[in-house]
Design a protein around this nucleic acid. Structure first.
Lengths: 118, 118
DNA sequence: TGACTATATCCAAAATTATGGATATATTCC
DNA sequence: GGAATATATCCATAATTTTGGATATAGTCA
């Protein structure tokens, strides 16, 4: 695998960010070190298959990694991002967190943290 | 229109870069100040309707502007890019030009310049 | 005015992607 | 081992996007 991705690879990385659900997940994981699938389900208020699929797409796209913790799978932003992913990260940091959607999701996550799971 | 785009707007900007044809056009216009539709057709070797549509999508997405010069429409990178577009520009500059597809397109453009239009 | 060229838009078909319920897999706890 | 829970994957359907030929529009030149 080359340092410089092919044009098609560049397109795929952008494509991984075209979906609002995936962007909401990225916004969450840029603030919260780790989240399990059920956390994300609760915050996004979407069915399990949808959330699980989008998480695995983001992993496949090189953004996330996962690790099993007992019965849960914890997702977090990969620590071995490609150069292009690293270039894009500040864009996400600057423009996702300030959206209304991200703010509402943060509130729902805080609410959930109060009532469950230490 | 706010300085900070909504999540859906962020998604749309990424979506505008998900297509390989559009990325090839952006790569060309980051090196070449202005191109008319027929230049792009010749370089990409794609039908007129396809090229014209993608150019107008890139314009609609905030990347390009156009101006009429006689019977031609010249497209170029907008000089009033939004903050998010400006953040993304270096990503395009760094990762598009080095692809094989972009190199071949540059060669075809140079070839065309030799044989036609001063 | 009329022929010609460049470009935009329309349209129906093809291709791609997203959706969520159903099912399969894996882990824990009793 | 069996029940219960979390997650991944399958599948058929729905929604979205792309495609390119056909047509419309607009400018040029004689």
């Amino acid at each position: 695998m080359d340092i410089f991705p092919a044009m098609e690879t560049v397109a795929q990385i952008f494509r991984s960010l075209e979906d609002e659900t995936r962007l909401r997940i990225m916004a969450l994981l840029l603030e919260q070190e780790e989240l399990c699938v059920c956390d994300v389900m609760a915050v996004l208020q979407m069915p399990q298959s949808t959330v699980s699929r989008q998480l695995s797409l983001l992993k496949k796209a090189g953004w996330l990694k996962d690790r099993r913790v007992g019965v849960w799978i914890h997702y977090s932003v990969s620590r071995t991002l490609s150069p292009m992913h690293q270039y894009l990260l500040p864009v996400l940091r600057n423009f996702l967190a300030v959206t209304d959607a991200a703010r509402l999701d943060r509130e729902r996550l805080a609410e959930r943290r109060k009532s469950c799971c230490p």
